[in-house]
Each structure stands twice: as structure tokens, then as C-alpha cells.
């Protein structure tokens, strides 16, 4: 555990909580892509099956349980409790274009050809692109609520901090996991355009809106 890893995890947690609170306080999930939220629930579920097979630490177990719990709570909000506010008309990204290639790739490029390991690999690849329906939705509507941009910022920051964590671990522990690193790079790059808008607009007090 190093400072980048810990702040990365906390940033991830902050993102998830911000989203849940935003929906709860405003009683609305407007502007949120339910499809991205489904993908994140799939990511956590397929990655954390090792909760049943191995124990790493109390920290590790509790964070996994919290992430999974929050992911399903978010889904419950979007598709049940606040379903009337869900903007499905703008949430039109075709997730099969992500699921099929990612599923295929996880069978082809993995550390070990075993069910749990393939599911872990699948979750790493899927996470790297799971935000695309949300970004697509924002590009379609041309705007995002400020609180939604805070959510996206912390979600993007988390993987960027993990990149520093991996550099750290490579130098000080000789550890590296090529699958996680490459997927983490892809994931972070997908946020770059958003980071730019966040810094140049949202942090200066303006609403995030895209030119028509």
C-alpha cells in the first residue's frame, strides 16, 4: 500500500458516494447513464468473486463489499426508485459493442486460462471502457450538471492515481501487471478530454456545456 494506491481508492470511493448522494438529494438520476452504471456493477461483480475464495485484508474485503453494494444501490436508484427521472432516450450507447470485444479479448489475453482469472481480466478490460456510455450521453445532450462532473473527475482521477501506484510498485517492489497497466492507461486517456473541460470550465465556476 502506498500513498497513490490509497488516494486512488479513496478517490474511487468519493466518486461512487458523490453519485449516490447526488441522486438521493435531488431525487433524480437525470443526466446519468444507467448503461455505464450497469457496466460498473458487472465490473465489480466479476472482479470481486475472489471475495469467496481468498482473504487479503480487512481493508481489501471491506472496500470490495462497499463498492459492490454502492454499485447495486445506484442501479436500484436509476432503474427502480427514481426510474421516472432516468433519461433513457439519451442513453443510447450500444453496450454490446463493448461487451463482445472485451469478452473476446479477456479469453485471448490473460494471465491464466481459468474461470476466475478470465473474469478478473474481463472486469479490468471492461472497466477501462465502461464510462463511454456516460461520456456519449454528455456529448449527445451537450451538457452535464456540475455535480455529475465532480463524479466523473474523481472516477477518472482514481485510475490516474493507480498509474502512479504502478510506477511506484515497479520501482520499489519489482511488481507489474501488464494487463492492469495497459487497461489503466486506456481508461485514463479516455478521461483526458473531460479533464481538460473540467479544469478550464467547471473549476472556474462555469457549467460544463459543449459547443453545439
Amino acid at each position: 500500500m502506498n500513498v497513490f494506491r490509497l488516494t486512488g481508492d479513496l478517490s474511487h470511493l468519493a466518486a461512487i458516494i458523490i453519485l449516490l448522494l447526488k441522486i438521493w438529494k435531488t431525487r433524480s438520476c437525470a443526466g446519468i447513464s444507467g448503461k455505464s452504471q450497469i457496466l460498473f456493477a458487472v465490473v465489480f461483480t466479476s472482479r470481486y468473486l475472489d471475495l469467496l475464495t481468498s482473504f487479503i485484508s480487512l481493508y481489501n474485503t471491506s472496500m470490495k463489499v462497499i463498492y459492490i453494494g454502492c454499485a447495486y444501490a445506484t442501479l436500484y436508484f436509476v432503474y427502480m426508485k427514481f426510474k421516472a427521472t432516468y433519461d433513457g432516450n439519451h442513453d443510447t450507447f450500444r453496450v454490446e459493442f463493448l461487451l463482445v470485444p472485451v469478452g473476446g479479448l479477456s479469453f485471448l489475453v490473460n494471465h491464466d486460462f481459468s474461470p476466475l482469472e478470465i473474469l478478473w481480466t474481463f472486469s479490468i478490460y471492461l472497466e477501462s471502457v465502461a464510462i463511454l456510455p456516460q461520456l456519449f450521453m454528455i456529448s449527445k445532450t451537450g451538457e452535464a450538471e456540475t455535480i455529475t462532473t465532480h463524479y466523473l473527475f474523481f472516477l477518472g482521477l482514481y485510475r490516474a492515481l493507480y498509474l502512479f501506484n504502478w510506477i511506484w510498485r515497479f520501482y520499489f517492489e519489482g511488481f507489474f501487471d501488464m494487463i492492469a497497466i495497459v487497461a489503466g492507461l486506456v481508461q485514463t486517456i479516455l478521461y483526458c478530454d473531460f479533464f481538460y473541460l473540467y479544469i478550464t470550465k467547471v473549476l472556474k465556476g462555469k457549467k460544463l456545456s459543449l459547443p453545439a
Binding site: H12, R47, D50, I56, M63, H111, W120, Y162, D177, A180
Partner: peptide, 10 residues
């Protein structure tokens, strides 16, 4: 191929 996949990260 890695010796033993060890996923201690989240």
C-alpha cells in the same frame, strides 16, 4: 505468463 496472478488491488 505471470507465475501466480495475485490481485491485491481493487
Amino acid at each position: 505468463k505471470a507465475d501466480e496472478p495475485n490481485h491485491d488491488e481493487l
